[in-house]
């Protein structure tokens, strides 16, 4: 019995250590963003918001934040539309080469972003897109479409195909059936995908680093700051980014969660 308790204790201790390793960088970023001292170390030098003031007084950081928000917004809208379309095609139709079709759309996250970055840079350079926010968004959409597709496809798995057929039989055009039945049913997933893809874009730094040129996004600015000296401003930016991304993810989660609740009540 004693050995059993010992083993159990060791298991819990190891789990706690591992979780500490995973979460310590996040927690410390937030805590030390409020530390008055320049070097993030103990002892605690007192509560201060001076690093936040410094962040908001820094024009390059603000520019980066605005650029990131623009790119994230564009990515969210385009990627969610394309992701919905791909998910609907996968749900509705059977055709030759469908596996290749979906695989091709889903593949980009499997390619290292450093490679996507250089491929985008050289290719977009030819189109005159490199160095523009449009160029960054184009790359982020490629990366985000699979996530949007997955979210909507999971939702569509709960939609009985007969419901759309019933709409057709009642005289609805295919278009009316989609806009009147399928899209309303998928709305929570579509909204969730808007928030999730925005978060994916908002945190992406490698494609943006290659493509953005002088139009830095916020993560690219952070990478540049990392090259310099220790700057507690990075902690403040990290905390701000954390709050923005987590809000997006929590909203997405709530939207998906509602779906789960409803479908479990229905059955």
């Amino acid at each position: 019995m004693n050995a059993h308790h010992l083993r159990r204790g060791a298991l819990f201790l190891w789990t706690a250590l591992l979780l500490a390793f995973i979460f310590a960088p996040i927690v410390s970023t937030i805590i030390f963003s409020f530390n008055a001292d320049r070097f993030p170390s103990l002892p605690w030098a007192g509560f201060s918001v001076r690093w936040y003031e410094a962040v908001f007084a820094d024009a390059t950081i603000l520019r980066g934040l605005i650029n990131s928000l623009i790119v994230a917004g564009a990515t969210a809208i385009v990627a969610s539309f394309l992701g919905f379309a791909a998910a609907y095609v996968d749900y509705r139709y059977r055709f030759l080469g469908k596996v290749v079709y979906t695989a091709l759309i889903a593949l980009p996250p499997a390619v290292p972003v450093v490679i996507l970055g250089i491929a985008m840079l050289t290719f977009e350079g030819r189109l005159g897109l490199s160095g523009t926010l449009t160029g960054v968004a184009v790359g982020h959409i490629v990366l985000a479409v699979p996530f949007a597709m997955a979210l909507v496809r999971m939702r569509l798995a709960d939609l009985d195909p007969d419901i759309e057929r019933a709409a057709w039989n009642l005289g609805a055009t295919p278009w009316a059936a989609v806009s009147g039945v399928v899209i309303p049913f998928c709305l929570p997933a579509i909204l969730a995908s808007i928030f999730l893809t925005a978060a994916v874009s908002f945190d992406e730094f490698m494609i943006a680093w290659f493509v953005s040129g002088v139009n830095e996004t916020l993560p690219v600015r952070v990478l540049a700051m990392l090259q310099g000296q220790v700057s507690p401003k990075i902690n403040a930016i990290g905390a701000i980014v954390f709050v923005v991304s987590m809000s997006l993810v929590v909203i997405a989660q709530v939207l998906i969660g509602n779906r789960a609740d409803r479908s479990s009540k229905r059955t």
């Binding site: 995973i22 979460f23 310590a24 960088p25 996040i26 410390s28 970023t29 978060a199 945190d203 730094f205 993560p219 952070v222 990478l223 990392l226 990075i234 902690n235 930016i237 990290g238 980014v241 954390f242 991304s245 987590m246 997006l248 993810v249």
Partner: peptide
């Protein structure tokens, strides 16, 4: 455990 995916990775490396 989903949180780290949406927390700036460069900032985590900085920490």
């Amino acid at each position: 455990l989903v949180v780290p995916f949406f927390t700036s990775y460069p900032v985590r490396i900085y920490s």
